[in-house]
Design a protein around this nucleic acid. Structure first.
Lengths: 329, 329
DNA sequence: TACAGTTACGGACCGCGTAAGCATA
DNA sequence: TATGCTTACGCGGTCCGTAACTGTA
């Protein structure tokens, strides 16, 4: 036959390692030599160049190469699905669960769910791949992850998205901050009057924060941009400005020295989505993890949505509601 | 790794051979022994039963087996696509073109196109798989065919359908037949007054012939049902009734002893569709064959439609128009 | 020198085919 | 007896890993 599954696996590993064969070898637990040879062999057997070389190293994928890689991903995803099917049938409660998510999710949302999973399935290894918002949807397509967790106002376009919960942004300020002493609900104008500390995403023009300001004729004064909520809090404590962050990121100890101010209607509500690959076969523990994270849906809904039969319409709870209900283990 | 492409190929070959391993072995050019062993090996490696056995022979696919086979088909189709991609890049003008179609298409429509293809690509082997209407759409999904050709009034639901041409049904009667002497356009009532000879499909309740009769309060008197147009003509000559058949099936020599009567508006116009698998990669000669059969569309349209970007909307010519234009070789 | 890719070689394993052994009709 | 699946076994090819070599910062 003209190619093997192993060769395809190596091929995408190389592509996903920025064409670094050694790196790819580590990813798939083999040697440089093996990959180098199999790639050459595959090119020879297909009779075409997948990569264009610069000296000895791979420079970039050729035009056909891109096409081949795209199809290889489909093949590997389906091969993985077959394995998952088998694992489920065997009630195999071991394996790994690979989750791509932002720092906020990993730090403030997932710890409880991951702890629950590890209690229920001690032999499952959880891999958290922290990513930025842009690469999240890519990694679901690349298939190197079982589950992506993204936050956005609208439903993500890629994959099958399951709403997990709604959440709001809140304002976090030092006790002495002028906004802390206002006795009335805040308005955009109030926020615009002070320097803000928030996430990188506010830099983009599609940023809902930016848009909310623009609608009232203001531009936010971004004193400081931070990559994660912990940094935002640090800078807020240092007095650089008022923090705008996800309500999940506010811990009980934070409100000892900082003041939390709700800004319910100023910014649109966000939703955290669990994003799966279409037609993906989930192993048992992955399904349990999902239904634990999003208790308002059940496995049947997820499977229907994965098959493309339906879209999950059930309205998710808010983060506050989710926290109020004690979970059964 | 848990499975190989070869094993998947064998698996679907077995399924497509009614679980007859020996038959499957002939299909994929190997031995019973090889298949038997690989299937067992695959089951062992996946740790699940794909087939339930009755004694030594395979009885039926298990529930997971069905799922696995479905995914295996996707994998094999994509593997074939990669090969086609390579063949195209190499301008490889050899290979085979597998076409599933009805007898009428094979006998009256394709001969010219196939002859043209063989002239242009002498190293391409054309396989015609005669099938009945029902199994045509299946075989496109099964992936054991490059192209299905179906005739219907509405666009087929499966795959990517390209309209090739419109055609009408005509009436064919012996010279002395009462309908041959009518000096006015026929009506359904006229047809209903005489026994008819036509295709099997007229038996089904969705039959457009049946419906056209029903709309006027009649039921066709089906004297004789034939599997193909040659048989219909034979029975018409034998005096069993008036033949209702596709205009393509009427050859010049037929009108020497039979009378052809147009019944333009009595029955809805049919369309012959070329049906491809979504995301299928066509090799050059297959694409040329398609654009030769359906000259009103070009390769770009086909590729866009295959990618699911567009639906081909261009209205096809009628069979008469198609025949009137001499083709360039 | 450190690093990345290719080439060379021996060994393990895999999958094929022949042929013999069984089961079922 | 015929057909079809399985098992046993030897052979050839495949793929891997080690190790030596080559080109590049």
């Amino acid at each position: 036959m003209s190619m093997t599954l192993t060769q395809l696996r190596y091929l995408v590993a190389v592509v996903d390692s920025q064409l670094n064969i050694s790196h790819a070898a580590r990813r798939v637990h083999t040697t440089q030599s093996a990959i180098s040879k199999q790639i050459q062999l595959m090119e020879e057997r297909l009779g075409l160049q997948l990569f264009s070389r610069k000296g000895k190293s791979l420079d970039h994928l050729t035009e056909v190469g891109v096409e081949v890689v795209r199809r290889a991903r489909v093949i590997l995803a389906e091969a993985g699905n077959i394995r998952a099917l088998a694992a489920n049938r065997l009630n195999q409660d071991s394996g790994e669960l690979r989750i791509a998510c932002t720092h906020t999710q990993a730090r403030f949302v997932l710890p409880g769910a991951v702890a629950w999973l590890r209690r229920a399935y001690p032999d499952v290894a959880v891999h958290l791949l922290p990513s930025d918002e842009e690469s999240l949807l890519e990694s679901i397509g690349r298939g190197d992850v079982d589950l992506s967790i993204v936050s956005s106002v609208d439903m993500p376009r890629a994959g099958v998205a399951i709403p997990a919960f709604h959440w709001k942004r809140v304002l976090l300020v030092p006790r002495g901050h002028p906004l802390a002493t206002l006795r009335r609900p805040l308005k955009i104008a109030d926020l615009a009057a002070h320097p803000l500390v928030t996430y990188e995403s506010a830099l983009k023009s599609e940023s809902t924060l930016r848009q909310a300001f623009a609608r009232e004729g203001y531009t936010p004064d971004l004193a400081c941009i931070a990559r994660d909520a912990d940094l935002i809090k640090t800078y807020v404590r240092a007095g650089l400005g008022a923090g705008v962050l996800a309500e999940m990121a506010v811990l009980p100890e934070d409100v000892r020295d900082l003041k939390l101010i709700p800004i319910d209607d100023l910014l649109p509500r966000c939703t955290t989505w669990l994003v799966l690959r279409r037609d993906q076969v989930l192993c048992h523990f992955a399904m349990r993890f999902i239904t634990h994270l999003a208790p308002h849906i059940d496995a049947r809904d997820v499977n229907l949505a994965l098959a493309g039969e339906t879209v999950i319409h059930a309205s998710p709870p808010t983060w506050g509601e989710l926290m109020a209900v004690p979970r059964i283990a």
